[in-house]
Structures are given as structure tokens and as C-alpha cells.
Simulated assay, not measured.
Amino acid sequence: MEKMKKFSELVREQYAFLVGQLEKMLQDYFGLSTQVKEMHAEIFSLKTKLVKELLRRCMRESCDKRRPENNVTAV
């Protein structure tokens, strides 16, 4: 009977340890998932800004891709 009690306690301790490890892994996963979403949002934002700035890059006045700064048209 004592052996069975020790074995049961060992199994409970191992189960508790594994559940703790699983909870930690899930917290890390969801934390990283949130960070990845934030990084993707920042990448898309930077890509949009880059595209806008590339359209302004042309320095020739006759360039049809040149955009005035701050969307103000020259008079």
C-alpha cells in the first residue's frame, strides 16, 4: 500500500510539472504571437511610407511621378 501511495504521489508531481511547463509554453507562444502581429503591422506601415516617399524621389520638374510635399500643389 505504501508503494502505491508513493507511486501515486510521483505521478501527481510529474503531472503538475508537465502542466506547469505547458502553461509556460502557451504563455510564451501567445506573447510571441502578439509581438509578431505588432511587427507585421509596423512592416506594413513602413512599406506604405516607403512607397509614398519613393513617389516623391524624382527630382526633375517634368517627372510625372513626382508628388508635391504635403500634397500642396505649386502655383
Rank of each mutant, 00 (worst) to 15 (best):
H40T: 13
L10H: 10
R66L: 05
G31R: 06
S62P: 01
M1S: 13
K24E: 10
M39R: 15
R66M: 08
V75D: 13
V11M: 08
E13G: 04
K52N: 14
M39F: 07
E61R: 12
G31H: 06
R56H: 11
E61S: 10
E13L: 07
S45E: 09
R60M: 06
D28A: 03
L50E: 02
M1H: 07
K47E: 10
L10D: 10
P68G: 15
L46I: 00
L32E: 13
F44R: 11
V72Y: 01
K3I: 03
A74D: 13
K52C: 06
M39T: 12
R60Y: 02
Y15I: 05
L32T: 14
F17V: 03
R67E: 11
R67D: 01
S45R: 15
V72D: 02
E9F: 02
Q14R: 12
A16T: 09
M59G: 04
Q21R: 15
D64H: 07
S62C: 02
V11D: 00
K6M: 14
S8P: 00
G20N: 08
V11W: 01
D28P: 00
R12S: 10
E9V: 01
R12I: 07
A16L: 05
R12G: 01
K65H: 05
V72T: 10
E53Y: 04
R60I: 00
G31C: 03
S45Q: 14
V11Q: 05
M25S: 14
Q21S: 12
D28M: 02
H40F: 07
K3D: 12
D28L: 07
L46T: 01
T34K: 14
R66K: 15
L54Q: 13
T48M: 08
Q27V: 12
E2C: 04
S8N: 09
S33W: 04
D64K: 09
M1Y: 06
G31P: 00
I43S: 01
K47G: 05
E42L: 15
T48I: 02
E38K: 14
R56W: 00
Y29D: 01
L55W: 06
E69K: 10
V51F: 06
M1R: 12
T73D: 13
L26G: 00
